[in-house]
């Protein structure tokens, strides 16, 4: 008997998510606990608890079934990609107001390019410059999004 570790992990993730919502509803982490109410007069906690309960059941069922199924063959985890790609949107969010559209777009393109092992510095610079020009043309001059080209961190240009 082999255990499919992937399904085991899926079941565990479902249960963790369910518990997270359930505990938050009952005890309230960083927020007040949510009243459950009654089926006739549901409180804000009723639906979350119902769903969390169902998700727990599904999670357990997935774990029980993992005993008999065959795992998929997986590629390696792209650690480099994860480390580079995932922080990029956060960086974008933190800098867009201060730096403005042009520098932030350039940074986004430049940094994310290095998620691939094939990327070389000259190409990354060219790519970032090209994308910045394109995005500025499309979003600023074309669609006229209200974000300034240069933010208030850059006094001379804003």
């Amino acid at each position: 008997m082999t255990i499919n570790r992937q399904d085991l992990a899926v079941g565990a993730i479902f249960i963790v998510i369910a518990l997270f919502f359930a505990l938050n509803t009952f005890f309230g982490l960083f927020q007040p606990a949510l009243p459950i109410g009654t089926p006739q007069r549901m409180g804000p906690g009723f639906f979350p608890i119902l769903l969390a309960g169902l998700l727990t059941v599904v999670g357990i069922a997935v774990i029980l079934k993992s005993v008999r199924s065959q795992p998929l063959t997986l590629n390696d985890v792209p650690w480099r990609g994860l480390a580079v790609i995932l922080p990029v949107p956060v960086m974008f969010g933190l800098t867009i107001r201060g730096l403005g559209l042009v520098p932030t777009t350039f940074l986004t393109a430049f940094i994310s390019a290095f998620a691939s092992r094939r990327m070389r510095l000259p190409l990354a610079l060219a790519l970032a410059a090209g994308l910045t020009a394109f995005c500025t043309a499309v979003f600023h001059y074309g669609l006229r999004i209200p974000t300034p080209l240069f933010g208030y961190w850059i006094p001379g240009l804003s």
Binding site: G98, L99, Y152, W153, I154, P155, S158
Partner: peptide, 13 residues
């Protein structure tokens, strides 16, 4: 640092 400096100048200008 540059950004913070800019902020101060910007506010006074």
């Amino acid at each position: 640092g540059a950004a913070l400096g800019a902020l101060l100048i910007g506010a006074g200008a």
